[in-house]
Deep mutational scan, measured.
Amino acid sequence: MGFKLLSKLLVYLTASIMAIASPLAFSVDSSGEYPTVSEIPVGEVRLYQIADGVWSHIATQSFDGAVYPSNGLIVRDGDELLLIDTAWGAKNTAALLAEIEKQIGLPVTRAVSTHFHDDRVGGVDVLRAAGVATYASPSTRRLAEVEGNEIPTHSLEGLSSSGDAVRFGPVELFYPGAAHSTDNLIVYVPSASVLYGGCAIYELSRTSAGNVADADLAEWPTSIERIQQHYPEAQFVIPGHGLPGGLDLLKHTTNVVKAHTNRSVVE
């Protein structure tokens, strides 16, 4: 069995187990497998329904001669939608809004960016022009300005110390501490036991640490421990890039980060 097929099978099995364990909360999309990078042309966006009122959005972007996937989250909030992270750029984010209108038909009224990198804030200006209120932590807003990236308009308070959590509509926002970046936030959907790890969490097929220019490698494993301790009931975990899975993604990420750190020390 090929690795790609095995990865998709694991996603399907995880979703099936969740649907059985929580039949009222989960209505997993039966329309197909989780979209992969090879299936999404740059400039297009796919939506994948995880649970009743919960979707991931998947886009792709060219970077350094390669094409990478990027995940975000959409959560229903009454007759409105909360968006977590842009679709990595203005063109993708405009396509995301169009796809949401086509498939869901509810307005996106608020959006949260989970850290300051372009795959999370690139497209904020498109959201703002569409009347979406954009939010991020003060740290993310400051770092985005320093980096020359787009800056969300509103500040999220109460997320300055490791372990801080605040309720934001249908989700809980959690600051686990520094990891992929010093400002990275985690998003949890309690009604569906869905954990969105953003770039602080890796997919299972990833074996290298990737972009760690703004990471705190020493603190990252401790931050992941905080996530595990705060959300032990999480059933569906979405990484910032690639295929979702279960809580095993947290341990896998820790292993990859520690291996990278150990290699760096040896070198």
Rank of each mutant, 00 (worst) to 15 (best):
D29R: 09
G148Q: 09
V121Q: 01
A165C: 06
K251R: 11
T109A: 11
A15T: 10
V132Y: 00
L82P: 04
S22Y: 07
S208V: 12
T93E: 00
E145D: 13
L97K: 00
I100D: 01
M18C: 14
S113R: 03
S161M: 14
S193A: 12
L24C: 07
V166F: 09
S137A: 08
S113W: 02
S139H: 14
E33C: 06
P35W: 14
E99N: 14
D85F: 00
L185W: 02
R141Q: 10
S27T: 11
N92G: 06
I201H: 05
P176S: 04
G148V: 05
V171S: 02
H241I: 00
K251D: 14
K102F: 09
K91I: 14
N211L: 09
A129W: 09
E157I: 13
H115L: 03
R110T: 11
K8L: 05
A130P: 06
E145R: 14
I50T: 06
Y135L: 01
S160C: 05
L185P: 03
L156N: 01
E172G: 03
T36H: 08
T36P: 15
Y196Q: 00
V42P: 15
E39M: 11
K251L: 12
G72W: 02
L156D: 02
R128S: 10
A98V: 11
S205Q: 07
V121R: 02
G242K: 05
A129T: 09
A15Y: 10
R167C: 06
E233R: 12
E157W: 13
S162P: 15
L81W: 02
E233Y: 12
S181W: 03
R120P: 01
T153C: 05
V108S: 00
E39F: 07
N255I: 10
S162G: 14
V28S: 13
Y34P: 15
V121K: 00
S205G: 09
L106R: 12
L96Q: 01
S264W: 10
I238N: 03
T134N: 02
E145N: 14
R120A: 04
G72E: 02
A165Q: 14
P239M: 00
A215M: 05
M1K: 06
I50N: 05
S193G: 11
D183N: 07
P239F: 03
K8E: 14
T222D: 13
E267S: 05
F3L: 07
G246A: 10
Q49S: 09
R46P: 04
E44H: 10
V237R: 01
G43C: 05
S31G: 10
K8W: 14
V194Y: 05
H117G: 00
P107D: 09
